[in-house]
Simulated assay, not measured.
Amino acid sequence: MQAKIFNIQSQEDFNKTALAIFKHQFKNNKVYRSFCDLLYKHPSEINQVKDIPFLPIQFFKSRKVLSSLDEIDEVFTSSGTTGSVTSKHFVTDINIYKQSYFKGFEHFYGNIEDYAVLALLPNYLERKGSSLVFMVDDLIRKSKNIESGFYLNNLDELAKKLIELDKKEQKVLLIGVSFALLDLIEKQQFNLKNTIIMETGGMKGRRKEIIREELHTILKNGFSVDKIHSEYGMTELLSQAYSKGNGVFETPPWMQILIRDTEDALTINTTEKNGGINVIDLANYNSCSFIATQDLGKTYINGTFEIVGRFDNSDIRGCNLMVL
């Protein structure tokens, strides 16, 4: 199945693979099967991808969402405020994740060996189980560049390194959490010509949340770059979407976004209408590939999408079928 997932060439390929994975997960994933049964949804009645049930993401906080009996390779956990329940993603084949993020990066940015990868992810480094740190750590190794590496609180050292590498015309990817990138430009004004700035979102309680347009304007001015790139991923997924500017994201061929109606979680909206983000991540073969997130967004006719916010009281509004 891996070969099919990572060799999707058309919408027809995607649809066939998605329907096959739905049947597999209905049969082998107890949590997902119970959810589908509550909705009276059975594979024999589902011929279109939009009719596949999407599991509310909250289930990853209370259940082991697995479609495999294999041993667990890794457990990824979400960040959360003190005392909050975090999501757990049990991964039985870590090589699928590695393939997904490596092929995904290559799809959008080319050969990782062309870059020095600098990572400013303090809140993720300060806890265990981050899928983002796992991915970036591997990309740092795969870059085979001695300048690549993680930075925690040593912002002066990072600023010096960024300026030095940019002057050498080395292509650099700086991937960082929003609050840390803001901390960096408060220390140093940059004028970067060969560096991609990629934010992974989130103030994580360190700063006041601001809208994306405002954040990107501040970062563009601080780094003197034309665009701010973004990564959209989450603990419960094994694939990432990327934006090369203006907050418009693209997915790799094995991942797609559908928008559900905010009043009726089982109805899929047409393009350019705001609603809840449903993610199809075919790399999640051993878990659940069909997830209803707590994010709000909209899709465009070319398959790109934007994030416009989050559900209020999302723990209770996402779905009324949480009592499993």
Rank of each mutant, 00 (worst) to 15 (best):
V133E: 05
F108M: 09
H107D: 01
L38W: 02
D226R: 07
I175P: 00
F150V: 06
A119H: 01
Q48Y: 14
F290W: 08
T77N: 09
T17A: 11
I268G: 03
E45M: 14
G129T: 09
S10E: 13
A159E: 11
G202M: 06
L173I: 11
K160M: 11
Y109C: 06
D37P: 02
I46Y: 12
A241N: 02
R63G: 00
N284E: 13
Q189P: 00
L192P: 03
A119I: 01
G318F: 00
G201D: 08
S79D: 08
I196R: 01
D138M: 09
S243G: 10
K30W: 07
F290G: 04
M135R: 02
I210V: 05
E157S: 14
H229A: 06
L121P: 00
S62A: 07
N320G: 09
L219N: 03
K27L: 15
S230D: 13
M1D: 13
V248H: 03
G276A: 09
T200I: 12
L19I: 10
K27F: 11
Q99L: 14
F105N: 01
L152I: 09
K208Q: 10
S78L: 06
G129C: 12
N302S: 09
G104E: 04
K193M: 05
C319I: 01
A119S: 15
S84V: 06
F26R: 04
N286L: 11
I96G: 00
S239W: 01
S67K: 04
E113L: 08
Q9W: 07
K167Q: 12
M1A: 14
S10P: 05
T271N: 15
F105G: 00
E106Q: 13
H107Q: 07
I307Y: 01
F60S: 01
N145M: 10
K23L: 14
F134M: 10
